[in-house]
């Protein structure tokens, strides 16, 4: 851990990252925890995020957006304390089953391999309170842009 000498934590950086991304704020995303090898993010169930009006189930797109941003934060947690801009190269999500109507959804993202230019991330997603049965899994790659001023996004 390198946090002891820093005045800000991984959670701080992830929260600032989240606040800078308008779409994630509008979705109501919330960072629950941020550690070197795992970030947890939550999206609330909301009427306007419903994908199927007959069942009230949340749209896959809202779940995807949470997983994509959580994946980016997983990379942030690995590169910490340096903040990098890491656009998604590709992302695959498997919807194992539909979430229950009214349930908030959260995911855990892990950057399991970080190379000079590419970060490899996996994400598992659950309904809140039902961590035994994932509703979706994701696998993604992100590229590490070498931008000197990237830290400004999170106030560094």
């Amino acid at each position: 851990m390198t946090t002891s000498s820093q005045s800000f934590t991984r959670l701080d950086v992830c929260n600032r990252f989240l606040e800078s991304v308008r779409h994630s704020v509008v979705l109501g995303l919330e960072v629950l925890s941020a550690e070197e090898n795992a970030v947890r993010v939550r999206v609330p169930w909301r009427e306007d995020l419903v994908g199927n009006p007959e069942t009230g189930v949340m749209h896959g797109g809202a779940i995807f957006a949470m997983m994509d941003h959580a994946g980016g934060m997983a990379v942030t947690c690995r590169t910490f304390p340096t903040f990098e801009i890491t656009p998604t190269i590709d992302f695959r999500v498997d919807h194992l089953r539909g979430p229950e109507k009214g349930a908030a959804v959260f995911c855990e993202a892990t950057c399991y391999r970080l190379t000079t230019h590419v970060a490899f991330v996996r994400i598992t997603t659950w309904e809140e309170g039902n961590e035994d049965e994932p509703i979706a899994t994701g696998l993604a790659t992100y590229t590490r842009l070498k931008i000197e001023t990237a830290g400004k996004v999170v106030g560094q």
Partner: peptide, 27 residues
């Protein structure tokens, strides 16, 4: 629209919003 912006410095659209848009288009 402001609500689909991801990276504010470029500014660029949120990849998740684009993905959700494409998924809904396919449906």
């Amino acid at each position: 629209h402001d609500n689909v912006v991801g990276n504010p410095t470029l500014p660029a659209l949120h990849g998740g919003a684009v993905a959700g848009f494409m998924e809904q288009a396919a449906i």
